[in-house]
């Protein structure tokens, strides 16, 4: 969600203004939650709340070297990783893919359900270290640069992770028999 006057918003937050913080939280909550869900799975709510707390504590360190949104999502990513690491969460089945795909018409309902299941299986089958990058890449609108900034990886590594994630997916999709759905 674009922010009307980001600089003013950040200044208001730094000054501890309630209204500015409310606007910041409401502007970034969905994306922060989405990042947290992708990385921390069932602990997404805790990770997202902790993210805003850390943003609150370290906002003074934001120097404007990257986009503010990228900085916030990097905090969300790192916070979620910390929570996963502390709690030993294994996000084999991330809960970010619960919504059914709304594309095909009524005649395709059966095949659509099978597709959805196969797609979920394929996503769950990607090695976690590659899957997070894949998820962030699409979440951020296919931006290599932003994905690299948030994960603190070189762009080349992001591309390699994406390539391997897609290879894993392709392998799982073939095994699941999706290629047989005509």
């Amino acid at each position: 969600m674009p922010v009307k006057d980001e600089k003013k918003l950040i200044e208001g937050c730094k000054a501890g203004e309630q209204e500015a913080w409310r606007e910041l939280v409401e502007t970034y909550r969905d994306m922060v939650f989405a990042v947290a869900r992708r990385v921390a799975g069932p602990s997404a709510e805790d990770a997202a709340q902790e993210t805003f707390f850390r943003v609150f504590k370290s906002l003074g360190n934001f120097r404007g070297e990257s986009k503010f949104s990228t900085w916030v999502y990097r905090v969300a990513y790192n916070t979620s990783l910390d929570i996963v690491s502390k709690r030993g969460i294994v996000t084999e089945n991330p809960d970010g893919f619960e919504q059914p795909y709304g594309g095909p018409g009524p005649d395709d309902l059966t095949i659509s359900a099978e597709y959805s299941e196969a797609v979920k299986t394929a996503l769950a089958g990607i090695r976690p270290e590659y899957r997070t990058v894949l998820e962030l890449y699409y979440l951020l609108g296919k931006s290599y640069k932003e994905t690299a900034e948030i994960t603190n990886m070189p762009i080349g590594t992001v591309k390699t992770h994406l390539h391997r994630a897609k290879k894993d997916m392709l392998k799982t999709l073939r095994r699941s028999g999706v290629a047989g759905f005509h």
Binding site: R29, E45, G96, V119, L134, Y137
Partner: peptide, 23 residues
């Protein structure tokens, strides 16, 4: 077969890009 795989990938990309609302 290839068309089915491409569709499955497109569906996966769509789901990956979905930003659902925070609770």
């Amino acid at each position: 077969e290839c068309a089915a795989l491409v569709n499955a990938f497109a569906q996966a990309e769509g789901e990956l890009a979905t930003v659902s609302e925070a609770p």
